[in-house]
Design a protein around this nucleic acid. Structure first.
Lengths: 348, 348
DNA sequence: TATCAACACTACAACGTTTTCGTAGTGCAA
DNA sequence: TTGCACTACGAAAACGTTGTAGTGTTGATA
C-alpha cells in the first residue's frame, strides 16, 4: 500500500491523469459522475498530492529555512516558536539548520538549503561569522534571488530585511532603573565587542550614563570572552565576576548582558556576603527560564523572542508573496520590556 | 542572476543537458575538453543541483520530519540537537513541526509532511494524543510505508522503532538514593497517569519501595494535572505542593517527576522553614537549566536528551537506508544517570 | 447537409534531474 | 567497400503535478 499518485488512480479507474487531477480540483470540465467516482476513490485511499512534485512545478516550496547558532537556548527556542506559529498560519513549513556558532557549518547549511529546498531564510548569524567578518555566503544567496531575514544578530553591511531587539534602549532602560532606585556605581558585565548584541548593550549602558551626566568608570566594565564550548566556562565566569566584584567594592548595581552573567553576579555577591538586592541590585538581559526561578528572582530586560520570530516570519512571507521585486528592505525593531523582580527591589 | 540549471548551462555552452549532467559527474563518456569547460562554467556561476528535482527523481528527500509537543523546553531542544547532529553527519536535513500538545495539530502536521516532503518521522506524541488515545494517524502513516521512530512519549500499541528513557529505573534509582541517605518517608510529586512518563516514574517509585519492603503511604503521592498553558499554573503548583508538604510533615525526601515540581518543592520547604537538604532532600527528573543554577543546586535524574535524539536519528536512518523490508522493530532504552548536587547532600 | 457549440474527456509540456539507450563520426581491419 | 569498435555526444523517459490546448461525440442551427 505504497504512496498513491494521480497516475495510479487514473490507471485504476481507467481515465487519464488529467481527468483525475481536474476531478480532484472539482473542475467544471469533468462530469459530475466522474468527479464523484474519482473523489470517492481518492478519499478512500487517502490521496495526498505529492509536495515535492508541486514544489518542482510551482518553483516554490512553501518552506522557510531557519539557521540558528544554537538550539539549546531559551531565547532561540522562543524565536522558533514565533516563526513556527506564523509560518504555520500561512501554510509554510519550517526547516531548521544549526550552525553551532561555526562559520563553516553556517555556510554549508545555507548551501544545502539554498538549492531549491526552501523559499527563503531566517538567520541569526553564528559567532564564527561575526568574528570572521565574512559574509559572502549571505550576499551571494541574496543575489541569487533568495530572500533572507536576519534577526537579533544582524550584519549591517548585508542588505536585507531585519528584525532586531532594541538592545541599546533595553540596556539604557536597565541602567536608568538602577539609577532610579539609588545605585551610584553601576557595573556592567558584557562580552567582547565583536558580538553585535554585546556591543549594543554596552552602548546603551554608556548612553544612559551620558544622558544622566555620570562619568563611566572604566574599571566597572567587565568584558568576558564569548566562547561557549569550554567545560570550565561557568567556573571561568564565576572567577572573573568574583575578581571583578572584589576589586570594585563600591559597585552597588550590576547590569549584565545575559541571564547567566547576571545570576553569576548574584551568586558571587551572596558568597561575598553582600545581599541582593539590599547591597547590590542586579538586572540581566533575556527573560529566560532561570530568571523566574532564581532566588532572589532576577529583574530582566525581556527580548520578546516569540514576537521577534513572528515578525521575522511575517517579513519573509510578505516578501515571498509580494509581486514587487523592488520592495524596499525593512528593519523592524522589537521593543524590550523591563520585567521587575526581586533583584531590584527597593526598600525606600 | 536567477537559479542556474543544467538546461541553462547547456544552452549557454551549446551542448545537451545530458552532456552537462555527465560532465559534472566526471563521466568517462565525455571528453576531457568538454568536461573542463562545463565544470569551470558551473563552478564560476556556482551551480548547485536542484534538491527538489533530485528528491522527485530519487523518490527520497534525505529529510527527516521531527514532530514535537513543544520546543521551548530544554529536554526537547537537547533531543533536537542530537537528532540534528546525526542527521547532518549522514547528509539529512531536519524539518520541525510543533504540535503544541494538541492532537489536531499533530495530525495536520504529520499530514502536511507525509506527502513526499520527508523520508521518515521522529515523533514524541502530544499530550492531546495521549489523552484522546487515538493513534490512527500514526498507524496509517506507517502503513503507507513511512517509517516512524517514537521517542520519550511512546505508545505501546503503535508498532515502530522506539527510543525511550529508562524512566522506571531512573525513578527507582532516585528513590534508592533518598533511602540510602536516610530518608524514611519519601513523597512523590507526579502527573496524572495518562502521561506515560509520569506513570512510569511513579511505577519506579513504587518498585523501589517494594524492593526495600517499605509500604507506600498513599498520602505521600501528589498527582498534579498536566496542562501547561494556564497563566496561573505556577501558582497552582506552588499551592498544591505547599498543601501537600503541610499535610505530610513527616516527609523527609521528595522525588519529583520534573525539574519544576522539584524546585517548587524546594521553595515551598524553604518558605515553610524547612531546610534543604538538612530536613528535606529532593531529587528531580530531567537535567535542565534550572537544576544547576538553583540554590541549593538540584540533584536530578538526567535523561541524556541528546543521546536520545542521536539514537532516534540513527534508528530512523538505518531503517531508511536498509534494503531489508522486514527489519524488526527495535526499542532502545537510554539509561538515566543520577547527577548528585546539593539537594541530596548528606551530613552523615 | 454543413457548421458550430457544448460537453467530457485526453495529450502534452513543463519544472530539473539522472540514466539508459541511440547514433553520428572516425579509424581500422578484413 | 563493408563491418566493427570506439569516442563523444544527444534524445528521451521517468519522478508527480498542473494547465493549456487539443479531440471526438452529440445535438442543434442555418
Amino acid at each position: 500500500m505504497q504512496k498513491l499518485t494521480l497516475k495510479k488512480i487514473a490507471r485504476e479507474l481507467d481515465v487519464s491523469i488529467s481527468t483525475v487531477s481536474k476531478a480532484l480540483k472539482d473542475s467544471s470540465e469533468i462530469s459530475q459522475d466522474t468527479k464523484e467516482k474519482i473523489q470517492a476513490f481518492a478519499k478512500l485511499y487517502n490521496y495526498r498530492p505529492n509536495n515535492i512534485a508541486l514544489s518542482l512545478k510551482n518553483q516554490k516550496t512553501k518552506t522557510i529555512g531557519v539557521i540558528l547558532p544554537e538550539i539549546v537556548h531559551h531565547f532561540f527556542t522562543t524565536v522558533i516558536s514565533g516563526i513556527e506559529k506564523v509560518a504555520n498560519q500561512r501554510g509554510y513549513t519550517v526547516i531548521i539548520g544549526l550552525s553551532n556558532e561555526s562559520f563553516e557549518k553556517e555556510v554549508t547549511n545555507i548551501g544545502k538549503l539554498a538549492n531549491g529546498s526552501i523559499d527563503g531564510f531566517i538567520i541569526s548569524v553564528s559567532n564564527g561569522t561575526q568574528l570572521k567578518n565574512d559574509h559572502h555566503h549571505l550576499i551571494e544567496t541574496i543575489n541569487q534571488g533568495m530572500p533572507i531575514v536576519m534577526f537579533d544578530r544582524t550584519i549591517d553591511t548585508v542588505l536585507c530585511d531585519k528584525v532586531v531587539v532594541d538592545d541599546e534602549n533595553g540596556a539604557k532602560m536597565a541602567v536608568n532603573k538602577l539609577l532610579s532606585i539609588g545605585c551610584k556605581n553601576i557595573g556592567i558585565i558584557t562580552t567582547r565587542d565583536h558580538v553585535n548584541v554585546g556591543k549594543l548593550r554596552t552602548a546603551g549602558y554608556m548612553k544612559a550614563h551620558k544622558e544622566n551626566d555620570i562619568e563611566v568608570n572604566e574599571s566597572f566594565i567587565l568584558k568576558l570572552e564569548g566562547r561557549s564550548e569550554d567545560k570550565n566556562r561557568n567556573e571561568f565566569i564565576y572567577n572573573s565576576v568574583s575578581a571583578f566584584l572584589k576589586e570594585n567594592e563600591e559597585i552597588d548595581g550590576i547590569f549584565a548582558v545575559n541571564e547567566k552573567y547576571a545570576l553569576t553576579a548574584v551568586k558571587v555577591a551572596q558568597n561575598l556576603g553582600r545581599k541582593v538586592p539590599e547591597h547590590l541590585k542586579v538586572i540581566g538581559f533575556t527573560d529566560g527560564v532561570l530568571s523566574k526561578f532564581a532566588s532572589p528572582t532576577l529583574t530582566v530586560v525581556s527580548q520578546h523572542g516569540k514576537e521577534l520570530g513572528e515578525q521575522a516570519a511575517h517579513l519573509l512571507i510578505e516578501r515571498l508573496e509580494s509581486k514587487d521585486q523592488e520592495r524596499p528592505y525593512q528593519t523592524i525593531v522589537v521593543a524590550t520590556e523591563l520585567i521587575e523582580r526581586e533583584t531590584t527591589y527597593s526598600y525606600t
